[in-house]
């Protein structure tokens, strides 16, 4: 359905209107993400990261500019095309958003039902993907019976169920303990390598970026202030946000913390 994913954002603006007052959240985003990238986006709270990925699957409609995936301009898709397009973009939410009325199995089956797969296909695919994210034993549990990390795995399984071309992840690993976080990141890397899945990772953690991403962008107040390979930016950060992030990160990781003199 989707051509080779190549994500391109050109002069993307997003404004919100609250009581006729205008809030510009994205201010001319230009971004290119290659097929097979694991692309990290960092930035302070409120920088517009979530809004940015919500524009990519058109949960938000951009005010101006263009977003292209392959040869498709997503704001020109018809309703039908949009549905098919979204079926091929998995998204993992920070707050899981699992359905309480369905078991883990039912939740992971949801995108497959939407894609009108047969019962047999659904059965097979769900079992396979639950195995992959290591919660096969929780198949018949309801979300109310799962820990945060297990819910996140179920969310990841759901996002991957329909073999998406692109995976959007909004702080998907922040609910996990460090060990699970690593194993989920490794899982994503693995799928990326095997299937060429393109991944966009939003995170506050530079560890996550360093561990998983090849390219990254730094978002500051709705503007991309820096983008490039992870290596480049870590070695030679140019923007204030990147510098602060990297400084705090290294300071914390070597525990340079003197009593009464907090950084």
């Amino acid at each position: 359905m989707l051509p080779p994913s190549f994500i391109e954002l050109k002069d993307v603006y997003k404004k919100f209107y609250i009581y006729n007052k205008e809030f510009e959240v994205l201010k001319g985003i230009n971004l290119e993400i290659q097929k097979g990238d694991i692309f990290g986006i960092v930035g302070f709270s409120g920088a517009g990261k979530s809004t940015l990925i919500r524009c990519i699957n058109r949960l938000e409609i951009i005010s101006s500019g263009t977003i292209r995936i392959g040869k498709y301009e997503i704001n020109k898709l018809s309703k039908k095309e949009l549905s098919l397009y979204r079926q091929k973009i998995g998204i993992i939410f920070q707050h899981f958003n699992l359905l309480d009325s369905r078991t883990v199995f039912g939740n992971v089956a949801f995108p497959l039902e939407v894609a009108k797969k047969s019962k047999k296909e659904i059965q097979e695919r769900v079992s396979e993907i639950l195995e992959l994210v290591d919660i096969a034993d929780k198949k018949d549990f309801y979300p109310g019976q799962l820990s945060g990390g297990q819910k996140q795995r179920a969310g990841i399984a759901r996002a991957l169920a329909n073999n998406p071309d692109i995976l959007l992840s909004d702080e998907a690993t922040s609910a996990l303990d460090p060990v699970s976080q690593l194993s989920v990141l490794d899982l994503l890397k693995d799928i990326n390598k095997k299937l060429g899945l393109t991944i966009i990772l939003i995170t506050h953690s530079l560890d996550v970026i360093r561990h998983a991403c090849n390219n990254m962008a730094v978002l500051e107040n709705g503007i991309i202030v820096e983008k490039g390979s992870v290596k480049e930016i870590f070695v030679n950060p140019k923007s204030d946000t990147a510098k602060v992030f990297i400084k705090i990160n290294t300071d914390l990781s070597i525990s340079k913390y003197v009593e009464g003199d907090v950084i």
Binding site: L59, P111, A115
Partner: peptide, 16 residues
Amino acid sequence: KGKIEAAKAMGASNID
């Protein structure tokens, strides 16, 4: 709202 949005993001139709 999050649950409904998640369904939308998976390409679910309004009927779904």
